[in-house]
Design a protein around this nucleic acid. Sequence first.
RNA 1: GGGCCCGUUGCCCAGUUAGGAUAGGGCGCAGACCUCCUAAGUCUGAGGUCGUGGGUUCAAAUCCCACCGGGCCCGCCA
Length: 647
Amino acid sequence: MIKVENPLGLLKMECLELVKGSLRRIYPEVQLFDVKFSQPPNPEMGELSSSVSFQLASKIRANPVDIASRIVEESTIPSDGLVSRVEALNGYINFYVNIGSFFRLVLETAAENKDYGFLKTKTSEKIIVEHTSANPIRPLHIGTARNSILGDTLARMLKRRGHAVEVHFYVDDMGRQVAMATYGWRLLNKPEPPSEPEKWFGDIYASVNILKEVRRLKRELEEASDTGDYVRVREINAELSKYAKAAQELTERNKEVFNAIAEAMENDPDPDASIQKLNMEYERQEPTAKKDVRTLANHCVHGFERILKKLDIKFDRWDYEGDLVWSGAVDEAMDALRKTPYTFYEEGALVLDCEAVAKDMGLKEKWGINPSYEIPRLVLIRSDGTTLYTPRDIAYSLKKFERVDRVINVIGNEQSLAQLQLKIALAAMGKIDLADRQTHFAYEFVRLPDVKMSGRLGRYVTLEEVMDKSILLAYEEVSKRTPELTEEKKKEIAKIVGYGALKFTLLNIDPIKVVIFDWNRALNFEINSAPFIQYSYARACNILKRAEKMPEPDYNLLASGSERSLVMMIAQFPEIFENASESLKPSDISTFTNILADKFNSFYASQPVIKAEPSSLAGARLMLVKAIKVVLKNSLEILGIEAPERM
RNA sequence: GGGCCCGUUGCCCAGUUAGGAUAGGGCGCAGACCUCCUAAGUCUGAGGUCGUGGGUUCAAAUCCCACCGGGCCCGCCA
């Protein structure tokens, strides 16, 4: 057997040779251009088609229909090749494969290679995928889950593509948020957190934030009523009722924490100052601050690790922002920026003039930014000398590039400007090459039907909640459908189905689209395609399990439309994978898999496999099922979804 | 005020990077199918101004321009 990685690629090469040969004979003067092949709309039109005549038509001022006919007339088809005939139709050139040889090539390649489809890159790189990087002050919720699941899938795609991938989690222990949470924890006299500490800390953080904001707004309200600014009064009241609602929700969930913090904060004349002080102490490595903040952050980090592990999402490194500052890496980066002509001081703060950098280095043109857009400046160092998030991220970026060639950051779309400013800072430092090798993989929020999720208001649907419900529902389904299974088996399948559905929901929709989270939609196994695909896989497994022998196949007998389109889909898989991983589009895989499962189910319903007559047809169909099994399994694997042998 | 993103059937989405043949799925709706490899399945049907209006092209959901509706950002927050 010939071993090939990409059977469709071979077929395309052969078709290309045919077209090229004809063109050379008919139009020797025409410069050859890129000829693309696509699948015709229905199987009667062959397996591949080319619209080369249309492109040629405008160049040589001729009718595309005539060009197509001439190309076909002039083509000489080798007798031992993969193409059996060529036809012209409506200006298109349609290629029909030699079923015996091409189907054998495709099915035997796919069925006998468990890594089928994972087409390797010719330019392997070292790549960091940074994802999740959630604030270590609250639980992971369904919004951050979108980040984790996308990031995890990107990493897996790139690994399968042949890159050396490191997965990093950036622990933001240096921001004001973590100081705020630690401040609240201290107000409670730092009790040992209960199990699931990150949920508890999330309540503390939200309590502090809400109480602090309410206090500020009340003060502003007094001022506004004193000056008789009633427009402002109305605005503030609206704000206050928003916080009141959040406080209400929080009290319903965790009354003790909220009340205890409320009481303790009464005694603090200026909570903001206390939080800022703690933040500054942490940055200066004051021992108690260091211990408290790190302890809190680590409780949360361990919680993240525990939950994500259940979804089989793991990290190679956890990079702490604090370490970056303390090691002097941030100072170094800032010094380097200070030496460029693009920074200046304003009221004691160090500022980067992003617009000037972009203008001098032609970055707008290079990166496709609207020339009339003035890029906002970036404050690098606060007037009190402490650092800020984006500048710390600049130092982090440099650190990452010490390890790898390429960096992919899975970060919310709302941080686009910050990510751009980061790249501009790199360019300002003369490291434009690094800026070009850094990708912001942006994704949009997951919203609740009426409100946006918000850590600050303590308003979120936690990831674990969704995971648990998903498994529970899947368990009920399994018990209903296959009561004969053992308890252990039911639970195993429930986990595979439940987590699969959750991941699929978030992977199958374009990351840049806002998702409105709907319990019913996410966990409805009729709507969700993951169980459907998994079920198809289980069916394929079942057929193979029941087939006692493997008769000698005759691939020429795979003549039905559904069989032919299945073989073509299998043939396409390596290029689908290649394209998905090059353009970082997990949904290409999920969509493809869904269609494959759909076609397989139609085939399953209409064509017997084991009992097919003659036995050479059964043999060919068994090979088809075997190949489908491999492709379903491999595409689910990329998506991080398990494929159950039975359901 | 400026910048970016989204808009496809009652609902949720694919297709837009790279323009090509009749715009695809799913849910829901109307109906059909288990003496036959698992019905988490299959089949049939109804349902569409691809946000609107121009333009480019032999050809536009896809490219360009303007506008409308929604989201995000423009902080010494992250």
